[in-house]
Protein backbone atom coordinates (compact mmCIF):
# COMPACT_ATOMS: atom_id res chain seq x y z
CA UNK A 1 0.00 0.00 0.00
CA UNK A 2 1.24 3.46 -0.86
CA UNK A 3 1.10 6.57 1.32
CA UNK A 4 -1.46 8.57 -0.67
CA UNK A 5 -3.89 5.67 -0.66
CA UNK A 6 -3.41 5.16 3.08
CA UNK A 7 -3.77 8.89 3.75
CA UNK A 8 -6.97 9.15 1.72
CA UNK A 9 -8.42 6.16 3.59
CA UNK A 10 -7.59 7.74 6.94
CA UNK A 11 -9.05 11.13 6.00
CA UNK A 12 -12.21 9.52 4.68
CA UNK A 13 -12.74 7.41 7.80
CA UNK A 14 -11.78 10.14 10.28
CA UNK A 15 -13.41 13.36 9.00
CA UNK A 16 -12.18 15.46 11.93
CA UNK A 17 -8.60 14.93 10.75
CA UNK A 18 -7.09 17.48 8.39
CA UNK A 19 -4.63 16.63 5.62
CA UNK A 20 -1.96 18.69 7.37
CA UNK A 21 -2.36 16.87 10.68
CA UNK A 22 0.14 14.21 9.61
CA UNK A 23 2.82 13.68 7.00
CA UNK A 24 5.03 10.90 5.70
CA UNK A 25 8.62 10.84 6.82
CA UNK A 26 10.95 7.98 5.92
CA UNK A 27 8.13 5.46 5.86
CA UNK A 28 6.51 6.64 9.10
CA UNK A 29 3.48 8.85 9.72
CA UNK A 30 4.37 11.87 11.84
CA UNK A 31 1.58 13.71 13.73
CA UNK A 32 1.37 17.21 15.11
CA UNK A 33 -0.99 15.98 17.80
CA UNK A 34 -0.58 12.76 19.76
CA UNK A 35 -4.31 12.22 20.32
CA UNK A 36 -4.85 12.18 16.58
CA UNK A 37 -2.12 9.58 16.12
CA UNK A 38 -3.88 7.41 18.69
CA UNK A 39 -7.11 7.79 16.73
CA UNK A 40 -5.35 6.72 13.52
CA UNK A 41 -3.61 3.83 15.27
CA UNK A 42 -6.94 2.47 16.46
CA UNK A 43 -8.53 2.94 13.04
CA UNK A 44 -5.76 1.07 11.21
CA UNK A 45 -5.63 -1.71 13.79
CA UNK A 46 -9.36 -2.27 13.28
CA UNK A 47 -9.30 -1.83 9.52
CA UNK A 48 -6.22 -3.85 8.52
CA UNK A 49 -5.17 -5.64 11.72
CA UNK A 50 -1.91 -3.76 11.47
CA UNK A 51 0.86 -4.20 14.02
CA UNK A 52 1.57 -0.55 14.84
CA UNK A 53 4.24 1.10 16.97
CA UNK A 54 3.59 4.58 18.39
CA UNK A 55 6.60 6.63 19.47
CA UNK A 56 7.38 10.24 20.15
CA UNK A 57 8.97 12.30 17.38
CA UNK A 58 12.41 13.85 17.51
CA UNK A 59 11.94 17.38 16.24
CA UNK A 60 14.72 19.05 14.29
CA UNK A 61 15.66 22.72 14.29
CA UNK A 62 15.34 22.99 10.50
CA UNK A 63 11.68 21.92 10.55
CA UNK A 64 8.92 24.53 10.40
CA UNK A 65 6.43 22.54 12.50
CA UNK A 66 6.48 20.57 15.73
CA UNK A 67 5.38 16.95 15.77
CA UNK A 68 4.35 15.07 18.91
CA UNK A 69 4.24 11.46 17.78
CA UNK A 70 4.72 9.03 14.96
CA UNK A 71 3.42 5.66 13.83
CA UNK A 72 5.22 2.92 12.01
CA UNK A 73 3.96 -0.44 10.88
CA UNK A 74 5.16 -4.01 10.70
CA UNK A 75 2.74 -5.76 8.36
CA UNK A 76 1.45 -3.57 5.55
CA UNK A 77 -0.89 -5.61 3.28
CA UNK A 78 0.79 -6.89 0.11
CA UNK A 79 0.13 -4.92 -3.07
CA UNK A 80 -1.72 -6.33 -6.02
CA UNK A 81 -0.38 -3.71 -8.41
CA UNK A 82 3.10 -3.32 -9.88
CA UNK A 83 4.69 -0.06 -8.82
Amino acid sequence: MKYIKLKNTILKKLPDLDKDDFHLLEGKLVFKNKDKSIQVKKLLEDLYSLDIVLTSTINHPHWDNKYESELYFNNIPTEKTYA
Partner: peptide, 11 residues
Protein backbone atom coordinates in the same frame (compact mmCIF):
# COMPACT_ATOMS: atom_id res chain seq x y z
CA UNK B 1 8.67 7.73 -2.53
CA UNK B 2 5.39 6.63 -1.00
CA UNK B 3 7.02 3.73 0.80
CA UNK B 4 5.48 2.81 4.14
CA UNK B 5 7.67 1.04 6.65
CA UNK B 6 6.35 -2.48 7.19
CA UNK B 7 5.85 -3.16 3.48
CA UNK B 8 6.21 -6.85 2.72
CA UNK B 9 9.64 -7.91 1.41
CA UNK B 10 7.99 -9.30 -1.74
CA UNK B 11 6.79 -5.80 -2.60
Amino acid sequence: SQYIRGTDVND
